[in-house]
Amino acid sequence: MNDEEIIPDQGEAPPDAAPKAPDAAPEALAATRPRRRVLRTAGLIAVATVIGLVGGTAVGYGVQAQREPTALPPLNQPDLAHPKPLPKGQRAKPLPASEDLRAKAQGDLRKLLLPKPAGAKKAEYADADGWMDVSRFASAFDRPSRALDHQLDLGIRRVAVTSWAAGEHREVEIRLVQYRASDVHGAADFVEDQQGYMPDEDFAESEGRELKGSSNGRYYVFPVKRKAGYLDMYEARAYFYRGDVAVEIFVVDTEKVSQNDIRSLAERQLGRL
């Protein structure tokens, strides 16, 4: 053997051996260090937080379960104010039938119509018995079949009518249009429909005037209608309702119909209801 130092052959490094650190400055080495330890620390903190929340909730439930249940407040609290029934002598008395519109309207509706004034004559086309057939009532509209369907939808029940002639050419007609009590809006809807087109050109061309003593009534005086070869035509109307009864009043004449004429008729008919 030679006296030379023999260095054994180390061969290739095993595949799982750590890589040899390169020759570099300390700062560069620090930058290339793995962050595995930092990530592991953050994960441990997150797990600890979750465990703390779960543990705290469990402890809270355990403490609450060992406590005595808290009683609910009584339902009949003595401090609450309740309306007390009035003494027997102070209770409201039911209206007599003469003042109860619902009771009066269930009877002969014609009795609620204004009576014919003294000296007035029966109108030429007056209904003989004071009742107007519902189909004839609807025939006065531009589209009778559609108007009839609409009235049936509103719950129309019956129509009482009176009419008379006064002076040389004046005619007055009053209709009480009653709707079924189950259709509480029937009378209101009908009156509001009629009032809705009164401002149109072919009608009163105005909003009319409020009827005193009624929250929904109005009366209208139409502009005069003139046509060659015919007498001038004057017209006035009133619409209002009480309960399930809608009221229509028509006045036509060849002489002027004043606001006082239609207002007086409407107020007196309102008083009958």
Rank of each mutant, 00 (worst) to 15 (best):
A103R: 05
D149S: 10
A128L: 10
V63N: 08
P85S: 02
K212R: 13
D202Y: 13
V63F: 06
A188Y: 05
V172W: 04
E210P: 09
R242Y: 13
L29C: 03
V134E: 01
P94R: 04
S182D: 15
K225W: 12
F190W: 10
A65D: 10
D153E: 11
D79L: 10
Q195M: 08
A140P: 10
R35A: 14
H185I: 01
G271D: 11
V184R: 02
I51D: 05
A160T: 12
D149H: 07
A238L: 00
E68W: 05
I7W: 13
R158S: 15
P22H: 14
A48F: 10
R175L: 12
S215N: 04
E68H: 12
V38H: 15
I45S: 12
L101N: 11
V251G: 06
L114D: 12
A17S: 08
T254K: 08
A18I: 11
P223W: 05
G55N: 05
G56I: 03
I45T: 08
A140C: 08
R180T: 14
T49H: 02
E5V: 14
V134L: 10
P115Y: 06
P74E: 02
M198Y: 01
E68G: 00
A13Y: 02
A24I: 15
R91Q: 10
N260A: 15
T162H: 11
V50E: 03
